[in-house]
Design a protein around this nucleic acid. Structure first.
Lengths: 164, 164
DNA sequence: ATACCAACGTTGGCTTGGCCAACATAACAC
DNA sequence: GTGTTATGTTGGCCAAGCCAACGTTGGTAT
């Protein structure tokens, strides 16, 4: 525990690359956030090539899966805050990837539709993302990839539905 | 591939909690960023109770491991940008957890020392973080935990040293 | 019916983490 | 000496994730 790490440091050391710490390399939260950062960079780059961000893809994907939905429902399904939904939908609507229509049965709600153009854009983004996944998982064989997905899914499921 | 997902949606559906999408649940980058978000919340909360943020802990931990170091070296070891190092060190120095001294052999550099108080604070933060790790990994048995760490470490190592 | 409360879309703002550009100073290489 | 590189620092940007508030509308209880 309270070991005093008075390591004699050599001034003029020439670290070639980036010698990563030791404590952190076994800290799950550190590993998660760091790998997530790498993943995020890959995804951002992949989507950025098509002028999209993570929220754009997430909303299009959610919309394609659930069908037309209210903004509140979209938020619940995609895990995006109501307020961020608004801004993202504005972007998507400006590019005609999405259409807002009033819900005749509830004048508070908008029913959001994905347009054919939006569906095409989603396909494009999906391809870009698939490539990014491959780059991300490059060092893992198929078995390890499935294992990783399994473990992460376990964590996500557990922390999403606290139930009690 | 291009399957048209025209799912008939039931207006007035009463989703109790948050029905997560399907495409995303098998997308590694999504799983990573989402679990990382959960991890981040836990860490932020844990550290926040002691008025610290991630950068504060990272710097203190790095400092304790490497011993006194220049700010540039700290940045390289911790993976934090030079400019962010400055601000974080300002915070830490204000709370006397860290001390900046001029490097007599190189007047550009500061040699940053962790103070005894800083070391105590680090221990406190470490405890808080350890607890957070347990909360994070709650649904995983020891074998799965080791497996997760192994896989994430593989990814991190691969993406950190591109070698080429 | 009236009063109350909950949900919706929207606006605006805030925080973390991660970047990048620029600049003055200082060290180093030629 | 000239030019290049490293350092600390300032200031700014972006994406993701939040939260509070407000006006409008629906539903519920009285």
């Amino acid at each position: 525990m309270g070991t005093t790490n008075e390591i004699a440091y050599s001034h003029r050391m020439e670290h070639p690359s980036a010698p990563t710490p030791g404590r952190l390399r076994t800290t799950p939260s550190w590993l998660l956030t760091q790998t997530a950062a790498h993943a995020g960079r890959l995804v951002t780059t992949a989507l950025g090539a098509h002028h999209a961000r993570g929220y754009h893809y997430r909303l299009l994907a959610t919309l394609a899966e659930t069908g037309p939905a209210s903004q509140a429902d979209l938020g619940r399904h995609s895990g995006i805050d109501r307020s961020d939904i608004v801004a993202t939908l504005n972007d998507l609507a400006d590019r005609h990837l999405v259409r807002r229509e009033p819900d005749p049965t509830d004048r508070r709600r908008n029913i959001v539709h994905i347009t054919p153009t939006g569906r095409r854009e989603l396909t494009t983004l999906q391809h870009a993302l698939d490539t990014a996944q491959d780059t991300l998982l490059a060092p893992l064989d198929p078995t390890d990839r499935r294992e990783l997905v399994r473990l992460l899914d376990l964590l996500l499921t557990h922390h999403n539905e606290p139930k009690g």
